[in-house]
Structures are given as C-alpha cells and as structure tokens.
Amino acid sequence: MYYPYFRGKQNELIAIKEQAELISDHGFAPIIEPVKQNMNGLMRTLDALKESGAAAVLIVNPKHGDFRRRNDQIIHLLSNRYSDYPDIRPGLLMDANSELVQFPGLRSQFVNRPVALVHKGFNEASVLARLIRDDAEIDTSIFINSDSLYRRHFNFHPTRVLVRDGFIKRVRNSDHPDAEEFSTLHLTFAEEGATNFGDFLIVGDEFSETGGPAYTVAIHLTYIDPHNDDRMYIRHFKSDSQDTPTDPGGKFLEALAKLIEHLDELGCLIEETEAIGEFRSLYARRHFPGLGTVKKLAMKHHIETLALFFDE
C-alpha cells in the first residue's frame, strides 16, 4: 500500500529498522536507495525487515552516493544474504541518464525472484515496455513524478506505485510557513491508476551528502486533517534563533518547546505517535539527541501517522 522512499543514510535506516514490525503489519514496503559504502546498517535494517516478514525494494543501481559508479556489493548482497527471501526485491532504477542497452545486463543479475522497475525521468517508455512485457518476474512499476502518458505503457504490471515528493519547492528552514499542504496522494492514488503510493517522507527527493549549517533548526511533522477531506499537511516548528550556525542544541530546544506547546493545544491534529512520545521525553529531559535523530523521529512519525489513518 505505502512505499516510502529512503536514501540509505544511517538515521533513515534506523527509522526503518525500528519500525519493521509496524511496516510488516500494515503491508508497507520501503524503497531503499543505498548511498553509503559501509553496508552494516543496511544489512541490519534488511535483517529486521526479513525477521518481521516485511517487504522492501532495494535499488541495485543507485544514482547517488557511494554506489553510483559501482554496485557489485549490492548485487552480491541480494544474491547471497537475501537469496531465500524474495520479498526483498531488487529495484532497477531507470532515470534520464539510463541507457536501454545496459538494461539486459542489469536485469540478468536477478533470476527466479520478483523484480521492481523504478521509473524516474526515463524517456523511452514504449521501447522499455515492449522489452519487459513478457518478463513475468518484473511485476512492479514504481513511478517517481511520472506523468500519466508515461505510466500507461506499464498498465500490464499488477503493482503500480505512484511516488511524489511532498515538497513542491525546496526552501530553507527559515522560509517555511508554520503549516502547508503536503499531499493528497494517500487519497487519490487509485483514481490516478496506481495500486499503491509513496513519498520521500519529510526529507524530500533532493539529495545531499551532508547537511548544511543549522542556522535554523526545524522539526517537520505531518498530520491529516479530517475536517478538510483528510488532506495531509506538514507543520514546521522552527527555532527563534536563526542568525548563526552555532548552538544547534539550543535551537532544537526552542523548536521543541513550540512543538510541545502546540501538542497541548485543544484541537491539535498531530497524532500522539510513539515518535511524539520520544519528543515529549526529550523535552522533559531538555536533551538534544543530534539533528539526525530529530529527522529520524519525524520520519517515524510520518509512517505512524499513515498507519493510523489506514487503521481507521
């Protein structure tokens, strides 16, 4: 049903690992694009998903990070450590720079297991569709910001996932409004011809190796508004201090105080998830766990929010 797209940074992998049971229980399937040469965290995460009986898609030809030029480690990992677990399926990523002539060689690395095709800006849809139409093992198409004319070439796939970035435009933390609409895809994906949907959580599609200086620390939390057709919104709790990149811990506590104040307001729509419980604990202890952990908690909250929505 829900396919959240993760880049395989440490805290993103930890977020998946810590929610492996919830992901399995709700039939969610994370898409993971590995970006770090050290694969220990990735293996721990995939092991947790396997132990929980969860599904996942592992991009085998990443376009970002350490594996964008050589991906033999990823192929070896799937072909050996997870050869007996087909629910962790390889994802073949076709973007604007992909060459169709290279596709058969990549495809041949994976036989006798389900395969997902990930479309992101590839521009030869009709040719690719003809090439794979009779390949029964490629049973899933994941479309990232693809239009309906492109997608219709792959209507023969039983699983069709529509993934969109909730952030229409990337801005600095300081430039975010207090709240803005984030997505309606959890409501409309079937109407758009998809069987499932996904997003880039609260991180967005834009990739950077490291974060920039924290002039403004923000906590980005999503919520669903039952009074407005169940649209999803995102609220940005920002620090007051924004002039220098110093004291990220103090800035976090400023943003956290705003979050706690809002949570305790009558009519607050942010769900009291386990992640929110962790934020409350941090506030009680006046503890700054690091910006990576803050992002991890926001991602966990996003997944929990969607799980609660579909439970209802």
Rank of each mutant, 00 (worst) to 15 (best):
F200E: 12
A96D: 15
S183K: 02
R160F: 00
T216F: 02
E209A: 08
I142S: 07
R151F: 06
F122A: 09
A218T: 14
D147M: 06
P90G: 03
A96Y: 14
I88M: 02
Q109E: 13
N155G: 11
D165W: 01
D165M: 03
R130P: 09
I88C: 00
P114R: 10
D135Q: 15
A125Q: 10
A190M: 10
E191W: 00
R152W: 11
L221P: 00
F167L: 13
V101Q: 09
E192H: 15
S148V: 04
D229T: 08
R152C: 11
H157P: 03
P177E: 06
R170N: 03
I144P: 08
N196Y: 09
N196R: 14
R151N: 14
K169I: 15
L100F: 12
T210D: 05
N145A: 08
F110T: 08
K120L: 02
R151K: 06
N155I: 09
F182E: 06
I132Q: 05
A116M: 04
T140N: 01
L128E: 04
F200I: 12
R151Y: 07
A125S: 12
E191T: 03
A116Q: 07
H119F: 13
N112M: 00
N173G: 04
T188M: 02
L201F: 05
K120Q: 12
N155F: 07
M94P: 07
I168E: 01
H119R: 15
A218R: 12
N228F: 15
A116N: 06
F154E: 03
I144V: 12
F122W: 03
V118C: 01
V101A: 14
R107W: 10
L100V: 14
D230F: 09
T188R: 13
Y215L: 09
F103Q: 11
I168K: 15
F103K: 09
V101M: 14
R89Y: 02
N112S: 08
S174F: 15
V118W: 01
N123L: 04
L185N: 15
G204F: 09
H186G: 06
D165R: 00
I219H: 01
P114S: 02
P213W: 08
L149C: 13
E124S: 11
V203E: 07
G198F: 04
R130C: 14
A214L: 04
T140F: 04
